[in-house]
Design a protein around this nucleic acid. Structure first.
Length: 516
RNA sequence: GGCGCUGUAGCCAAGUGGCUAAGGCAGCGGAUUGCAAAUCCGCCACCGUGGGUUCGACUCCCACCAGCGCCUCCA
């Protein structure tokens, strides 16, 4: 009954044991805020939100840090192109990022440190590396001397010799092409900070070393990020932090697979794609989102889908696997998600209370004793065990969601078997058992950040008059059905269906739902 | 070229050295329904190809094929 985590550093699943018993520090590489976020930027936060919730559920005290890199060459270029200051641009894009996180229900991040607010620590860390002989100043720049770090390359499993880059535009100042900048001198007109080496700005990787140390300490538990960051970003971060501190930076390195844009062309198959790929612009869009011009802003996606739908979509696959992004795929998981929402309505019909107000155990131990002490519908306890086993195994959210589907089915089956929707047949004991089962669903889903609040009502449904009119139509139709005028009753149902309203005739009346 | 990942039903996707290989979407039967919807039950996979290890592999090893990522822009 212990959690196991896949560690990029060792390429194996390891038992999860925090550096300090009971406490967990997580650092996730956040965005460089120079453009609005796209769906790829949400993958890590969604996954680690679930990781944190699950760890908290398991009794750990978790501190989760997501950094905001608000100084960088890309920010300088973009702000210049837009004719605004770098800090203005950063502020705007940070707000966009925060809005997106909020829409996704990601409210578990404890700290959002900004690079520009960590400048003292960055400069001190750079100085430490120079003092210890791991870095050198050259013409206002400071570079990390890769040759001095015997362990360089251990994360991405590559040797310094194997790197045959040209060293970039600053190659002339570097001792070796693989050396990377800790500090970059400012060109005229660029934003800059004073430093012992003259005015300049931090290199790309140093800010994460400084911020993680500041908030989580020299050695913390989990460092996360996209798979694309393994090299060079995390490799360099490890080099900086570990050479400066003389101890491991993070115990576990977790990397999530990347969201890939999937176009129709990309799906045609290997050969066809190959042939097209050479010259066709569209074919290039079927690839990595970060590079793709086709990756639209995340807020546009949120205009179509509820945050919960996207969360469900991301979590339905194992985090280390790449996910193909397509609206068809999202539509598909959305249909599965609707099964849960229907169940919640069913729950409300039976118990008279909202599923969302159901109090469930917030910790695993509380859940264990609740499961042991209360009478549960058949299979519910098994589903719970399988769910926990899935999550324990490297946060297998895909498997866990499968277990949730089985749990709902067990609950629905119980409702059918006990005729709980017919008040004459529903016994208080059976309702209590049902409620305990629903509580289990709520308990487990909460660890994935699912079903915390009712989904936003579709457009129109929030309009009181619309609801009243639909109630009226349903009532009229009920009269028609009683009078055996089925032709007219069916016509109403068909015509409402054409408008996107589904009617369900139940023993106790007719329910309507508005499709998106 | 170097490092690494993936290949499971029409589609998406978990998973295990050996009972009937989760789950979702789609489809097809059935129960239920005035008919539907919803719900429940049932059906639908020999796990890329070829070898090897083993009493036994989808699961381990090798080769091959296909797709993908990284090798200093990238969550």
């Amino acid at each position: 009954m212990s959690i196991r985590v896949y560690n990029t550093l060792t390429k194996t699943k390891e038992p999860f044991e925090p550096v300090e018993p009971g406490k967990v520090g997580i650092y996730l590489c956040g965005p460089t805020v120079y453009k609005p976020s796209h769906i790829g930027h949400m993958v890590g936060p969604v996954i680690f939100d679930a990781v944190k919730r699950y760890l908290v559920y398991c009794g750990y005290q978790v501190t989760w840090v997501v950094n905001i890199t608000d100084v960088d060459d890309k920010l300088i270029a973009e702000s210049a192109a837009r004719g605004m200051s770098m800090s203005q641009l950063a502020e705007e894009m940070t707000a966009d990022y925060m809005d997106n996180l909020a829409a996704m229900g990601i409210d578990t991040v404890d700290h959002f440190p900004r690079a520009t607010a960590t400048m003292d620590e960055i400069i001190r860390l750079t100085q430490t590396l120079i003092d210890k002989g791991f870095a050198y100043a050259a013409g206002g720049d400071v570079y990390f001397d890769v040759a001095r770090d015997a362990e360089y390359g251990k994360l991405s499993n590559r040797s310094v010799e194997s790197m045959h880059g040209d060293g970039g535009e600053m190659a002339g100042r570097k001792r070796a092409a693989a050396d990377f900048a800790l500090w970059k001198s400012a060109k005229p007109g660029e934003p800059s900070w004073d430093s012992p080496w003259g005015p300049g700005r931090p290199g790309w990787h140093i800010e994460c070393s400084a911020m993680s140390r500041k908030l989580l300490g020299e050695t913390f538990d989990i460092h996360g990020g996209g798979l694309d960051l393994v090299f060079p970003h995390h490799e360099n971060e490890i080099a900086q932090s570990e050479c400066a501190h003389g101890k491991p930076q993070a115990k576990y390195w977790m990397h999530n697979g990347l969201m890939q844009a999937s176009s129709e062309i990309g799906k045609v198959g290997g050969r066809a794609t190959r042939e097209i790929a050479d010259g066709d612009q569209a074919a290039q869009e079927s690839g990595k989102l970060g590079k793709s011009k086709g990756a639209s802003a995340f807020r546009e996606l949120l205009a179509i889908y509820a945050g919960e739908t996207i969360r469900f979509f991301v979590l339905s696959t194992h985090y280390r696997r790449p996910i193909d992004f397509s609206t068809e795929r999202i539509d598909e998981v959305d249909k599965g998600l609707a099964t849960f929402y229907r169940f919640f309505q069913r729950y409300e019909r039976i118990t008279g209370e909202s599923f969302y107000r159901l109090e469930a155990p917030a910790s695993r131990t509380a859940g264990d004793s609740a499961a042991a002490e209360s009478t549960l519908p058949p299979d519910v306890a098994d589903c719970r065990q399988r769910f926990l086993a899935s999550m324990d195994d490297d946060f297998n959210t895909g498997g866990a969601i499968g277990d949730l589907f089985e749990l709902v089915r067990a609950l629905n089956k119980f409702v059918d078997g006990e005729s709980l929707e017919e008040s004459a047949k529903a016994t208080p004991a059976a309702v209590a058992t049902f409620r305990a089962g629903a509580r289990t669903l709520r308990e487990l889903a909460a660890t994935l950040g699912l079903f915390r609040a009712p989904p936003k009502a579709p457009v129109g449904a929030s309009d009181a008059l619309t609801g009243q009119l639909l109630d009226l139509l349903a009532a009229v139709r009920s009269e028609l059905r009683k009078a055996k005028n089925f032709a007219m009753a069916d016509s109403i149902r068909d015509r409402l269906a054409a408008l996107g309203v589904t009617l369900e005739d139940r023993p106790d009346g007719t329910a309507w739902t508005i499709q998106r």
